[in-house]
Every structure is written in C-alpha cells, then in structure tokens.
Amino acid sequence: MSITEILFWFLTALALGSAIMVITAKSPVHSVLALIVTFFAISGHYILLNAQFLAIVNIIVYAGAIMVLFLFVVMLMNLNAGSEPQKNRVLQFAGLISGGCLFLVMITALMKSDVVDKTVQMNDGDHGLINNLGKELFKNYLVPFEISSVLFLSAMIGAVVIGKKEKIEK
C-alpha cells in the first residue's frame, strides 16, 4: 500500500467521521468544528489529486471565511446543546431511511456504470496548479469571473439590507 493510498484512506475516514460528527453533535459549536475538519480533509484530497489551487481556496474560503462566519453566528446567538429542540422521532427515522436509501441507490447506480474501473491521476498533472488555472480563468472565464464579483456585491448588499431592514422595523 503506497503512501498515497494510506493518505487517501486516512483522509476518507477523517472526512466521513467528521461529517457524521457534524450531524450528530449536540452542540452547534462542535458541529462547526467538525465541519471545519471535514473541509480540511477534503482539501487534503484535493492535494492528493494535485489540485493545489482548489485545496488552498477551499481552506481559505470555506474553512477560513465561511466557517468562521458560522462560528461567529453560533457564538453570537449563544446556541448550546440544550437549546435545539429535538425533531419528531418518526420524522428523524424517515429522514435517516430515505437518506440511506438514496445512498444505496446511488451506489448501485455507480456499480452499474462503466466509469467504475477508470483510474484517477494522483500526485501528477499540472492542471490544478495555480499557473494553469489562473491563465484559464483570465482567458476563457474572464466574463463569469467578473460577473461573480457582481454577485458578491449583490450578496453583500442583500445581507446588509436584510440586517438593516430589521432595525428599522424595530
């Protein structure tokens, strides 16, 4: 078993374990922390796939910005383990079953497809390097890139408006 495979399985176990933690943790803070771990594990996968740019972006944007935002909000609201009311048991069970079914269905579908046995290029290939992606981004995807800045702007304004409107009403 090569070091890459060892790393793959380790990261996979870490991602799944912490993902389960996310949905089972009683305290939202723990969930947020588990999610951050999941994102790190996924970033690790990106590095294994030699998609270094995405790995860094994932850490910066998700683990850094977004999750910190989440953490902020959770702490701001002072949510703790006891504050979340439990869902109806039947509904919880139904959700679990349907999610599990979906998993089974998708895995079965996967096993029937013909891409199953194709291999993935690991630790190699320069497509994921910032050099290549940057060129690609600013050559072929310049317009969407600029438009995404507009999206950010509108999201920012939206967030401000939603927050501000409330104050006026109060």
Binding site: I20, V22, I23, E84, K87, S98, F103, M106
Partner: peptide, 18 residues
C-alpha cells in the same frame, strides 16, 4: 456518502444553522 450524510443532516436536524 458525504452527500447522503448531508441529506440526512438536513432531514433530521431542526437547527437552521446545522
């Protein structure tokens, strides 16, 4: 697996942030 865990989370939790 991750996706389905996400779905199960959405279905079973009531906290909007989670």
């Amino acid at each position: 697996a991750l996706f389905c865990i996400g779905i199960i989370g959405v279905l079973t939790r009531r906290n909007a942030i989670i």
